[in-house]
């Protein structure tokens, strides 16, 4: 009994002292760098690295997913059998705003030959589909979801990237790994979840998770706050500055004309 309590205490200490990310199942250890992204005025996308150790016969899959929200869409359809228009409204419930998966080159070629095995692991878009609800339900939800993924892919917000996980030399049963996540410029502030999985013999054998905090800082943060907290003032200021810029340009050009 005493032994059990001691073990529990030691484990709890590990949990609370260490970053929740670096202390996880024995099969995988991972460290996230950076742990937060600041969006300043010159932000243009960035890279996030996940590095650590994993047992030597496992593959690493890193998944970054964003806040879950509902997306309102318009379905395109033909009117009079000729004209393409936005027709019915559809809502896709509980989809992440960002969904990036990084895997190694080797795993990439495996999933090309055996896609079903990949989907069973639950990292692909088809797996994502299971979490998601499309309403109204009768609207051919399989097709809708596929097209929605295409839309997100075209914006760089959904991606499964191969050759983004590399391994170091194996030593004493484990090997080091490094994974790269390419964060697109189109990034919304908020909390993101980074999950690192060890995959062995077609199943997930270990997993660690970490939070990635994204926030706007500096000038963008100032503008954002002004726009959302003092909308009317912001609108008035925006028009005044625009008018001032127009007048200023007019004055500059008048001066030039006077010189003739």
């Amino acid at each position: 009994m005493l032994k059990k309590i001691a073990t529990f205490l030691v484990l709890s200490c590990c949990f609370f002292l260490g970053q929740p990310f670096s202390s996880a199942t024995a099969d995988i250890r991972a460290h996230l760098a950076p742990e937060a992204i600041d969006i300043g005025a010159f932000f243009n996308g960035t890279k996030v690295y996940v590095s650590g150790d994993v047992s030597r016969d496992a593959e690493v899959v890193v998944r970054l997913s964003g806040m879950v929200h509902d997306v309102a869409l318009k379905k395109k359809g033909k009117v009079l059998g000729l004209l393409w228009m936005n027709l019915d409204s559809i809502t896709i419930h509980r989809v992440p705003n960002l969904y990036l998966v990084s895997i190694s080159k080797a795993l990439g070629s495996t999933i090309r030959t055996e896609p079903s095995q990949w989907e069973e692991l639950g990292f692909g878009f088809a797996a994502l589909k299971k979490e998601v609800k499309v309403s109204p339900a009768e609207a051919g939800s399989e097709t809708i979801f596929r097209e929605f993924v295409e839309l997100k892919k075209s914006e760089g917000l959904y991606a499964i990237e191969t050759d983004r996980v590399t391994y170091g030399e194996a030593a004493s049963g484990s090997k080091s790994f490094e994974a790269v996540l390419q964060i697109p410029p189109r990034l919304t502030p908020g909390k993101y979840l980074v999950e690192t999985f060890a995959v062995k013999d077609g199943i997930v054998s270990a997993k660690t998770t970490a939070e990635l905090q994204v926030e706007q800082v500096g000038f963008p943060a100032l503008i954002y706050r002004l726009a959302f907290e003092h909308g009317a003032l912001y609108g008035v200021l925006a028009t005044i500055i625009a008018i001032a810029a127009g007048l200023l340009m007019g004055v500059i050009f008048k001066g030039e004309k006077g010189a003739h």
């Binding site: 309102a72 869409l73 318009k74 393409w84 936005n86 409204s89 097709t143 097209e147 839309l151």
Partner: peptide, 12 residues
């Protein structure tokens, strides 16, 4: 209006 769109859904 006439050409088939690449992606069959659009943001509202």
């Amino acid at each position: 209006l006439l050409l088939t769109p690449d992606i069959m859904v659009a943001y509202k």
